[in-house]
Amino acid sequence: MLEGKVKWFNSEKGFGFIEVEGQDDVFVHFSAIQGEGFKTLEEGQAVSFEIVEGNRGPQAANVTKEA
């Protein structure tokens, strides 16, 4: 699992990017966010995740919000 911070997330469109120190930003789709209820992320929020190869390159999977 990697750790990063949410760079930005558009809850209307359901996607955004996660910043990872020393690496390129990683695309995140709302469907990759773990948990119940409305799936969104806040700018600057700490998250842990895995990287998988998507249709358009690397993207986040199994995203969990850090306490």
Rank of each mutant, 00 (worst) to 15 (best):
E12V: 13
G22R: 07
E36M: 09
V47A: 03
Q34A: 11
F38K: 09
R56W: 14
F9A: 02
R56L: 14
E50P: 01
V6P: 00
S31M: 09
D24R: 15
D24G: 14
E3L: 14
L2S: 09
Q45A: 11
K13H: 13
E19D: 07
G14L: 02
A32F: 06
G57L: 04
N55Y: 14
Q59H: 10
G16F: 01
E3Q: 15
F17K: 05
F27H: 02
D24Q: 14
G22I: 04
E36G: 10
G44S: 06
A46I: 12
G35Y: 07
M1N: 11
F17H: 04
D25M: 07
E19C: 06
N10I: 07
Q23R: 12
K13N: 07
N55V: 14
K7P: 01
P58Q: 08
F9C: 02
V26K: 03
V6F: 01
N62D: 05
V63F: 00
E19Q: 14
T64C: 05
E21F: 12
A67N: 14
H29D: 03
G14V: 01
L41S: 02
G44C: 04
S11M: 11
K65H: 09
V63N: 01
M1Q: 13
A32V: 07
G16A: 01
G14D: 01
G57R: 09
G54W: 08
I18D: 00
F30N: 06
V26T: 07
Q59L: 07
E12A: 13
F17T: 03
M1S: 09
S11K: 14
E19R: 12
L41E: 01
G4F: 01
K65Q: 11
I51Q: 06
E3S: 15
S48Q: 15
I33F: 05
D25N: 09
E12I: 10
E42N: 10
G14H: 04
K7R: 12
F49E: 00
K7N: 03
F9T: 03
W8C: 04
S11H: 15
Q23Y: 13
D25H: 06
Q23S: 12
N10M: 07
K39R: 14
L2E: 06
Q59C: 04
L2A: 10
F38S: 09
F30M: 08
E3Y: 15
W8F: 08
V20T: 08
I51C: 04
I18Y: 00
K7F: 03
E53Y: 14
R56A: 14
V26L: 09
G44A: 06
Q23N: 11
F17E: 03
V52E: 08
E43K: 15
V63C: 04
W8I: 04
F27N: 02
G14T: 02
S31V: 04
I51S: 04
G44T: 05
E12W: 15
H29G: 03
A61L: 08
I33S: 02
V26E: 01
Q23G: 11
F38G: 07
Q23P: 05
E21C: 06
K13F: 08
N55A: 14
E66L: 15
D24C: 05
G37W: 06
S31A: 10
K13P: 02
V28Q: 00
E21M: 15
G14E: 01
G37F: 05
N55P: 14
I33W: 03
E36I: 07
F27K: 02
N55G: 12
K5I: 06
F9V: 04
M1A: 11
N62T: 09
F17L: 07
L2C: 04
P58M: 10
S31N: 08
K39D: 05
T40R: 11
R56K: 13
S48N: 15
F38L: 09
I51F: 06
E21V: 14
Q23C: 04
S48L: 12
I33Y: 02
G22P: 03
F17W: 07
K65S: 10
A46Q: 13
N10E: 06
S48I: 12
F38R: 11
I51D: 01
K7Y: 03
F15T: 03
R56Q: 14
I18T: 00
V26W: 03
Q59D: 02
D25I: 05
A61E: 08
S48F: 13
E36R: 08
F38P: 11
F27R: 02
F17C: 04
I18N: 00
F49N: 00
Q59R: 11
S11L: 12
L41A: 04
E12H: 13
G14R: 04
G22M: 07
G4I: 01
Q23H: 14
A67V: 12
K39Q: 13
V6A: 03
A61R: 09
F27D: 01
F49H: 01
F30V: 11
G37L: 05
T64L: 14
V47K: 00
Q59T: 09
E66V: 15
F15P: 00
V52G: 07
D25E: 06
K13T: 07
A61Y: 09
A61Q: 11
G22F: 10
A60L: 02
I51P: 04
F49Q: 00
L41Y: 02
W8Q: 03
G54P: 03
E43V: 13
G54I: 07
E36Q: 09
E12S: 13
E50I: 08
V63K: 00
I51L: 13
E66M: 15
K7D: 02
H29P: 03
K5N: 05
V63A: 03
M1P: 14
T64A: 12
K13C: 05
A46D: 08
L2K: 15
Q23A: 10
N10G: 04
G4E: 01
V47L: 06
S31G: 09
G16V: 01
I18S: 00
G44R: 08
A46Y: 15
E3D: 12
E50M: 10
F15E: 03
Q34E: 12
